[in-house]
């Protein structure tokens, strides 16, 4: 059968799974419910119900994680190229590596290890990662981490600069994602990763601006491979935020950023809005393939939307358990 139709089964299946998304009306009902247990009852009518059998109301984080894990494992099973699912799972591998490294740092200063923070969502068994790092057998580490981890350990010995260590690991993460996308040779996937890198770069730019970092430092935090050149981003860094929107008008991000209210000069409020807008931008990039019944990009789209869904569910549940204001929560929800 032709190469392009390989995704027919997977995409169709995901289409059917899509109909079970927790969509706006359900989220609305969860928002309207009195308290946490009421919201959970509404959630119990969705696909999350299968994880709700045991445990009390406080366990909603486990419920959300179980659902995410189930979806990742299930799609991993029937998607023709598992790299597509790996694009979502690899960040959790990097999370695990960070947990192991930080545990080592803590242990050196008399703290305890925090193995309970390891997550099974990654592609590599966390036990293998622990063995590789603790036995200093760095060649066993996947995704080019073999070179990064010893550097990080040395850096910690020398300066204890945690931010720099985090930056290196994050940089490696985006490098890995980029090379994985390039390997899949689907234009949509490559451009989606580029869009994600763009979003990440703009987000970092905004965050670092708040900390008033100098430009040399900002340079090191921008990742290569986005649609927008790093030089262009650096050139707008010293300008006020309103200028950014104008400067980026002619990039892919233009329409998304243009919707932000630029008259609001409060950088903090803008950042939160911008984060949501960037998430919506990434959604819109992957939405272009929505109507192609055989596009592998639809796998990414489903997983991305699932991630947005878990974010929304978590926002509502956390909000409900803390008695946050309904209208505030509504403003935070991502578009599905």
């Amino acid at each position: 059968m032709a190469q392009s139709e390989r995704y027919g089964y997977a995409v169709s299946r995901l289409r059917a799974m899509e109909s079970r998304f927790v969509e706006a009306p359900i989220l609305q009902r969860m928002l309207e419910s009195e308290d946490l247990s009421g919201a959970l009852k509404v959630l119990g009518e969705t696909s999350y119900a299968q994880w709700m059998a045991d445990g009390g109301d406080g366990r909603f984080d486990q419920i959300v994680e179980a659902e995410l894990r189930f979806v990742l494992q299930e799609t991993h099973r029937f998607v023709p190229d598992v790299e597509l699912v790996d694009l979502y799972r690899i960040p959790y591998d990097f999370h695990n590596v960070k947990v192991i490294l930080k545990s080592a740092f803590r242990k050196a200063s008399g703290g305890s290890r925090r193995w309970e923070l390891l997550t099974p969502l990654g592609t590599v068994d966390s036990g293998d990662l622990i063995t590789a790092i603790e036995s200093e057998d760095y060649r066993m580490l996947p995704f080019g981490l073999g070179g990064v981890v010893p550097d990080c350990l040395a850096l910690w010995e020398q300066s204890g600069d945690l931010l720099e260590i985090e930056r290196r690991i994050d940089g490696q993460l985006f490098k890995t994602l980029r090379s994985l996308a390039a390997k899949s040779s689907h234009a949509g996937i490559v451009s989606w990763i580029a869009a994600r890198i763009d979003a990440e770069n703009v987000r970092n730019l905004g965050r670092l601006k708040r900390f008033n970092s100098d430009i040399a430092r900002v340079t090191s935090f921008l990742h290569k491979g986005g649609h927008i050149a790093i030089d262009q981003l650096l050139s707008i860094y010293s300008e006020p935020f309103e200028f950014w929107i104008r400067a980026l008008t002619f990039t892919d991000l233009g329409p998304t950023l243009g919707m932000l209210s630029s008259k609001d000069s409060d950088l903090e409020a803008i950042l939160v809005d911008m984060e949501r807008a960037l998430d919506d931008y990434i959604t819109s990039v992957i939405h272009r393939y929505r109507y192609d019944p055989f596009a592998p990009e639809n796998i990414l789209r489903y997983l991305w939307m699932k991630e947005m869904e878990t974010k929304n569910v978590r926002i509502v549940l956390v909000g409900k358990s803390n008695g946050a204001d309904r209208n505030l929560l509504r403003g935070l929800l991502r578009h599905v």
Partner: peptide
């Protein structure tokens, strides 16, 4: 709350380890 809702609780805790 917003920061916490973004990601899994373990990821947040890792960031603040």
């Amino acid at each position: 709350l917003l920061a916490r809702a973004q990601t899994l609780p373990v990821v947040l805790e890792q960031a603040l380890m």
